[in-house]
Simulated assay, not measured.
Amino acid sequence: MSATDIGDDIDSDCEVIADTLEASYSGSPSQSLSEGDPLQLECQVSSQTFQHTHLSVTWFLHGEEDEIPRPIITLDKDLTVKPGAGFEDGYRAGLISMDKVEDTTYRLKMPQVQQSDQGKFFCKAIEWIQDPDRSWTQIAHKTTTACNVEIKRIVAPDAGSFSVHLKASKGPLQEGDELDIRCSVNAQNLPGHFFSVTWLKNQQKVAHIGSSGVLTMFDSYKERENAAEMRAVKTSHTDYLLTICSARAEDQGQYQCEVWQENMNEDGTFKKIQKQMSSPETVSITAKEQQKGVLKWICEDLNERFNTGMPRGFNYHKHNVRVQLMRNSISQVQTPTNLLSSQKPGSNKALKINEHGSNRKRRGHSCPMTARPQGAATDANQEAT
């Protein structure tokens, strides 16, 4: 057999597999976090080959002092999850995980980052094919762009002092979303201290948890807490959580935590020693786009009907919105989340959308019931003097 015949025979047995592997990261190119904050990153990986191939995806961290990137965690070609060298303890403790979301998204989750986690995070995908002898051969690989993550160190306070940190739900938030305002206290020998925590919005008191565990809601927030629309709890020695289960536009504003260190007197009351304030954080809440669009359409339609003349009494029902009109003016509007009632007839060319009527409970979802801590004081006289 000639050399030409051998070459033709080899060509007839070989099949070239096109490289259709794609890997991308579309998130923010950088993030700034503090120690203890959660980190979540996603990359998209896909292949359009007609061959029966498998994919493995690995998240890497290239720290400032790393000569080469370190693999954090891998979802292997056999769908097993493997932590990288040096990340095994974090994986076993649940501080590092990786999920495959739908067909193409690979999500890295680190609920409490540390200073050592600072650096550039990126994703690498490898496409594999299995040979007849059941061994695996790599046929393609792709690497995504990186996200540079800065992690600020929380400096431990000096003996006898403490610091306060506030963290609010990241936006954008819409009406009806859950809003969490978390206050964290950092102090040495924390279990030996007593603290009272007050949440403020625009420098007005919202809720207060005393050193004895007594919860106090202020002003209109009392009704919302009684209706299970919001709650405040001490979740650990260091963390205090205010949850508004169905946020309203009126809940937007600038939030702060005021924390007092207190000493317990012999009679069981508490005396204030020193105070710390958290840095303020602004929360923005917008109306749901679908509701805004429907109400705008209703306004335009009603104005057109006004211009063409309407009977003295008229009931209008469209898009699950009821409008009662008397003498060519809007007297009442009712939507699934709004009840508007005016004492006097309104303008015949305007539809004013206010928030909830005072005689109607909001139909938002309620907070889950939380038991008060055992032994918590119920006498307001036990609060700080």
Rank of each mutant, 00 (worst) to 15 (best):
M1C: 04
D5I: 13
D13H: 12
C14L: 15
V16A: 00
A23V: 15
S26D: 07
L33P: 06
L39R: 06
Q40S: 11
S47T: 12
H52R: 04
T53K: 02
F60M: 08
L61Y: 14
V81Y: 10
E88G: 01
E88S: 13
G90E: 15
G94C: 10
S97C: 07
R107Q: 10
Q114Y: 11
D117K: 01
F121M: 02
I129A: 02
I139Y: 08
N148Y: 11
A159M: 11
H165T: 03
L166K: 07
S169A: 09
Q174K: 00
Q174M: 05
L179F: 01
C183Y: 05
S184Q: 05
S196Y: 02
V197M: 07
M217T: 11
F218D: 04
F218R: 02
S220G: 09
E229N: 01
L241N: 08
L242Q: 15
L242S: 08
I244P: 14
Q252V: 14
D267N: 05
G268F: 04
G268C: 06
I273Q: 13
Q274Y: 02
S279Q: 07
S279W: 08
Q291P: 08
E300Q: 06
L302K: 02
L302V: 01
G309Y: 04
F314A: 09
K318A: 05
N320R: 13
V321T: 02
V321I: 08
Q332H: 15
T337V: 06
N338I: 09
K352N: 12
Q374P: 00
A377V: 06
A380E: 09
E383N: 15
A384C: 00
